[in-house]
């Protein structure tokens, strides 16, 4: 039997200064959870988000930063790469 993933994961995130904090993930598929960080509209980094509920990106270059949580979605063995990352939270932004 192929694997079943129930529901659609969702989490709320918020900012405290430059630190981003997440709540618990509902309908958690338990695949890789990561922060996706964009700078001036371009993705510059991802960071693991499972072990801790908060994260602060070390980047200090001036500009607009945006952070969102994403999770790996397994789409089946025949799918390209077996799946893809999907965003599961609201986005937060700050400026340096």
């Amino acid at each position: 039997m192929d694997q079943v993933f129930e529901g659609t994961p969702k989490a709320d995130i918020r900012l405290e200064g430059r630190k981003v904090i997440r709540g618990e993930v509902s309908n958690d598929w338990a695949s890789r959870l990561q922060w996706k960080i964009s700078h001036n509209g371009k993705v510059i980094a991802t960071a693991p988000a499972r072990a801790d509920l908060d994260y602060e990106h070390p980047g200090t270059e001036a500009g607009a930063y945006e952070v969102v949580l994403e999770m790996w979605k397994y789409e089946g063995f025949k799918a390209k790469d077996h799946g893809k990352f999907v965003e599961i939270s609201n986005k937060v932004a700050y400026t340096v």
Binding site: N27, W29, A30
Partner: peptide
């Protein structure tokens, strides 16, 4: 959710 919403969890 704690166990994971998948077959193994």
């Amino acid at each position: 959710d704690r166990y994971g919403r998948n077959t193994f969890g």
